[in-house]
């Protein structure tokens, strides 16, 4: 484990905690895309299939359980919690995310490290995570103004995979036969999708103004 990877995991954990804080503190999920949250739950459930079969470390297992539990808890809150679910922007969150699932699965069948059950689902989770933020970014542009916590949530979510890219570069030079081309290319695409958000987030931070995305 290198510092980039650890920083990436902590940033990812912070993003989840910020979202849980937003939902818990404001009892509202306005501005949050349920579709993106459902895609993340699917990403973790399909990526961590090796949770029971392949023990890496306590840290690895604990973090996997945290990500699975938190993503399911957020989906539950937005779908079932009597107060939170009322603030869901149902008519703004209209991205056809099933296409993202289908495309990722087809790509995973074609491009994977090994044509096996776990490997295909692992590749599927990598591809799906790369595009899972799209419904959220579309909702953001439609809903215009963004509350602070939601802005921070998306910022940390985008930053974590950027740190993972540094981790892959580091491992590529430090470890002999390290290759994670699938994760690395998907990670680059994933981070690139946040490019314009990062720009507007920086502008709002520099001008001490509210985060505004152009409609």
């Amino acid at each position: 484990m290198n510092i980039f990877r650890f920083a990436g995991d902590m940033t990812h954990l912070i993003s989840v905690l910020v979202l849980l804080l937003k939902i818990y503190a404001t009892k509202s999920c306005s501005g949050i895309s349920l579709k993106t949250q459902e895609l993340y739950a699917l990403v973790f459930l399909t990526r961590y299939l090796d949770l029971l079969t392949d023990f890496i470390s306590i840290y690895n297992t604990v973090m996997k359980l945290i990500f699975i539990a938190s993503s399911l808890a957020i989906v539950w809150c937005m779908r079932v919690h009597p107060i939170v679910r009322r603030s869901y922007d149902k008519d703004l969150d209209t991205f056809r995310h099933y296409f993202l699932v289908a495309a990722s699965f087809i790509l995973a069948l074609l491009v994977n490290e090994k044509f096996g059950f776990q490997e295909v689902f692992w590749a599927f989770s990598i591809y799906l995570e790369a595009v899972a933020i799209l419904p959220q970014l579309v909702l953001l542009q439609r809903s215009g103004n963004v509350d602070n916590l939601t802005g921070h949530y998306i910022f940390f979510l985008g930053a974590y995979r950027a740190l993972y890219i540094l981790n892959w570069i580091y491992r590529y030079f430090m470890e002999t036969h390290f290759s994670r081309w699938i994760a690395c290319i998907a990670g680059l695409v994933q981070t690139a999708l946040y490019a314009d958000f990062f720009y507007y987030y920086y502008i709002s931070w520099k001008n001490k103004a509210k985060l505004q995305l152009p409609a």
Partner: peptide, 10 residues
Amino acid sequence: LPDEKRHDEL
């Protein structure tokens, strides 16, 4: 799986 092939990341 041999070590380098395992998915040791999150």
